[in-house]
Amino acid sequence: MAPVRPNDNGRASGFGPRASRRLCVILVITVLLLAAGPATAKDLDARAAAIAARLRCPVCQNESVADSPAELAAQMRMLIREKLAAGETDKQIVDYFVSKYGEWILLEPPRRGLLWIVWLAPAVALLAGGYIARSYLRRAVRSSNKLEQ
């Protein structure tokens, strides 16, 4: 094997320790970039799916854009993906669909004004049911105790 000769600058040509270090750095960067590509795509896919799950499919009966096999839902999913790739935030995208279809497009009603009734009614009903059941049971226990006496 021919010895590595110093070049005009006095530096060794070929794969010296500096060159191999540089190569390592390039390799690491390449690997990181390659890994980051699919990761970003995955992240966008997850965000797109989460947004689609919040939107009602306009041509279905109570089905989300994420779940529906309808063509319009597929087009909406594609549009969400494109908007995310273009750098729009989740809120901007949801607001876009609300501006086109109204709040009807949201599967979950917004938490404000009279719409709080929708959110609070189940809890209130549960508490009221619990209270009624408790008083009924108390009365039943009391009357059975009396009968025993």
């Binding site: 041509v59 669909f97 086109k100």
Partner: peptide, 13 residues
């Protein structure tokens, strides 16, 4: 074909 115009108009059917 992409449905962008129809979505922009809030078309649902």
């Amino acid at each position: 074909p992409s449905g962008k115009i129809s979505i922009d108009y809030g078309v649902y059917g």
